[in-house]
Nucleic acid binder design. Structure first.
Lengths: 373, 373
DNA sequence: GCGACTTCCGTTAACGTTTACGGTTCTGGA
DNA sequence: TCCAGAACCGTAAACGTTAACGGAAGTCGC
């Protein structure tokens, strides 16, 4: 059924040339004439040549260096992303990967420098958070020109030449938030607010649009107010919300699409409207937990940072190893966290780098695992 | 920072013996004395020997044969699981895996035969659906004794010696269903029904318990009725539900934990209680779609069959290749599907076995979706 | 016409493991 | 005493790729 795969030797033999020339041609290394190069490329294609990765790795054993340029962050989101990257890097069978974390403290502080040093170090690939697409775009483009593939996590930098993007599906997030808001609220009239970082961020605009669209389609009794932009500044968020609650005393729900949910909750508490509001937030971090348990936050939409990190790494690695990756845009389904299943997610987060953890000793001896240490 | 990894030659040299003996010792092949074997094992441990997988694969290039013993199924669930397995098998870099699907038509029909033939064929590993744990337990045990690792998908077979299990977290599923039911329903009194396959199935009992517990903790206004067992028989489900609706006219919600949601919906329609009920179902398949769109089904808890298949395959493969896998029990977080985000999941399902050759032009409108832990 | 250089190409030794094959030495039985 | 067989062990050839080396032409300057 399976004919043996074609090798470099096969191509060489078919062309009456040598392995060395074939190898040079396929890697467009110098030292091969344009004619033979073309003939090799053609023959490789017709014979359906696929490089044997095991042999390649065994022979060259050069290590891939991947630079991870991310934000420190105010919540645990980016820590989780980095953990996911580390996990994925640790679980590839042929471990020849070296991770190089360049974490900058604040938004727009040190990201450009990190990019510059990564490019100068001539790393093999970059995983990054494109916090400021408009600024980072040129850096990503510069990396691409230097043949360094870049994969964005969480936020896209469209038109930058980046290899790919992995993030949470904005449509699914915004829609599910709207559906929950609508169902939780019932059929009476009411108005809903939404907070986001900045309408200039594609992801946030899309989430907002999806939320609005679903709300309009299925819950016409709910009216969406003009979005509030907080720019990830606590005071801005708090003050704008205080003003909002005063201006719309009949407000019945808030959808917080950013990490800055605590200021919103504080504002609601201080305005004494907390128990009248249905609040849906985004992500999951320690400070938010008591608010979920108390029921103040009805639900939170978990953006699966660890999964994002894992998949981003896999995408980059696949490209570096195979020369092409399967899908360059990955949109994950968000998870929904509420009071009842909160512990499940907390438990999952806590099994951190313990991947080697000994699992419940109820079934100890399997007998198969006795291969070698 | 990185000293070169130890090789067979290193061990041999350190012991003054030969590569051949070291190899035989590490694989407990015949032809090595107990003494040298012990010394090799010790030295391998102290030198921290890890086999070089690239070299191993390059040299042996034997193909792993994995048998997939699953149900045909009445919905697309198991098709999706199999698709996930295929995808995962296709995406491993060193492709030396041969999948062998043994699909039996009905529950408890042909599963034992499939196991027997798989064991007789001496496959390298088995992925299976332990539909009837009590019956299959002995078969799994038999496979384990034949050194064939078995990974269960969706349903566990505890105490069978299986290598591992991947499924949806029952606590998260039951709890989120209860939370939604409670929030959707509001604060007025009401009673809720739950349908399941059989209380004998661990997963179903656990889901039921989680549902009950969350309901009792946070929504004491809702009263849970005695569970209905449908045994995956349509008529049984329909009839029991009809009787239920007659007996409890003030019923306000149903949580369907099995695939058999259509009979429940039909019964509710025929009993003319459909619009009074909050119905939460499980999984996502074509027949269910119109009911979600119409709002008859408020939400459905998607069990991510494709992700289950992918992860189960990975677990088995990792064990077969590396000799030990990281975690033998994987509990996935379920996804929540409602009207608004339904299209996202449908779109994702439809990108089936395409995965090959998606050399996208520039930036397609909507991202490709991938499923993952 | 002779070295020095360029351009192209063939050969070959790694990489670490598996596997088959030939050797030892040792045992038991005739 | 000698042979057959077992039990143990060393050697070497694969596997497919990479990278380095050396050789064969051909080109240029003197």
């Amino acid at each position: 059924m399976g004919k043996p795969p074609t090798t470099l030797r096969d191509i060489a033999k078919a062309l009456g040339t040598s392995i060395g020339s074939v190898h040079r041609a396929l890697h467009d290394n110098p030292g091969v004439s344009p004619l033979t190069k073309e003939r090799v490329l053609l023959m490789a294609r017709t014979l359906g040549y696929r490089p044997n990765l095991a042999a390649r790795y065994l022979s060259s054993k050069k290590t891939l260096r991947i630079s991870v340029i991310t934000l420190q962050g105010t919540t645990s989101f980016w820590d989780e992303v980095r953990t996911g990257i580390r996990q994925a890097a640790g679980s590839i069978p042929l471990e020849n990967v070296e991770l190089d974390f360049r974490t900058h403290p604040r938004l727009g502080e040190g990201d450009e420098e990190a990019f510059e040093s990564a490019i100068n170090d001539n790393v093999d690939g970059i995983l990054t958070f494109a916090s400021r697409p408009q600024v980072l775009r040129s850096w990503i483009r510069r990396a691409s020109r230097a043949k360094i593939p870049v994969v964005c996590v969480a936020t896209d930098a469209p038109g930058s030449g980046r290899l790919g993007i992995v993030g949470i599906d904005t449509l699914a997030s915004g829609s599910i938030a709207a559906d929950l808001m609508g169902r939780f609220h019932g059929t009476r009239e009411g108005s809903i607010a939404i907070t986001l970082f900045d309408m200039g961020i594609t992801e946030h605009a899309e989430k907002c649009a999806a939320f609005e669209s679903t709300l309009a389609s299925f819950y016409p009794n709910l009216q969406l107010l003009k979005p509030i932009e907080d720019h990830d500044v606590e005071m801005e968020s708090y003050n704008k919300c205080r003003k909002l609650f005063e201006k719309f005393p009949n407000l019945s729900g808030v959808y917080v699409t950013t990490e800055a949910s605590i200021p919103v909750l504080n504002a609601a508490r201080d305005a004494k409207v907390l128990d009248r509001l249905t609040i849906i937030t985004t992500d999951l971090f320690p400070d938010l937990i008591p608010h979920i348990r108390s029921g103040a936050v009805a639900a939170t939409i978990y953006q699966r940072p660890r999964a994002q990190g894992q998949i981003a790494f896999r995408m980059l690695h696949e490209f570096l190893v195979e020369g092409a990756s399967r899908s360059h845009q990955v949109a994950l389904a968000p998870h929904l966290v509420m009071r009842g299943n909160l512990d499940f997610f907390l438990h999952r987060q806590s099994q951190d780098s313990f991947k080697e953890k000994v699992h419940e000793a109820q079934e100890p001896a399997h007998g198969l695992a006795e291969d070698f240490a």
